[in-house]
């Protein structure tokens, strides 16, 4: 029974990571791509870590998994924020250049 639960967690986690990559290819602009690249991988690694914790079932593994989950959920929005901020500077620069060239 527990084998089935662990297998489901593993498959669902890798499936969400695969979805993030497909979204990275399919979506049109950077902002939509970041939607796929922020939410889906962190959720996928969350599910996989739950599966791994059930598999090993020792306190040290629980602590490490909690640390990874906490850190990823704290930093994924910050990384997206940093990427968008740098892109906005470039966007502004490009539009100004176009105006001056015309």
């Amino acid at each position: 029974m527990d084998n089935v639960i662990i297998s489901i967690f593993l498959l669902a986690g890798s499936f969400f990571i695969l979805i993030a990559s497909i979204g990275l290819i399919r979506l049109k602009d950077l902002y939509s791509r970041l939607h796929a690249a922020t939410k889906a991988p962190s959720f996928g690694i969350f599910l996989m870590l739950i599966g791994v914790s059930i598999f090993f079932n020792t306190p040290m593994v629980y602590i490490k998994s909690l640390f990874v989950i906490f850190f990823i959920y704290l930093t994924a929005p910050l990384a997206a924020h940093a990427i968008i901020k740098s892109f906005q500077e470039k966007d502004k620069d490009d539009s100004e250049k176009k105006i001056t060239e015309l």
């Binding site: 986690g13 990571i17 993030a20 990559s21 970041l34 690249a37 991988p41 690694i45 996989m48 990823i72």
Partner: peptide, 14 residues
């Protein structure tokens, strides 16, 4: 490319 690198780090972890 930076966003893709971020996703690749998560894939390596998985």
């Amino acid at each position: 490319r930076i966003a893709a690198m971020d996703v690749i780090a998560v894939i390596v972890m998985a």
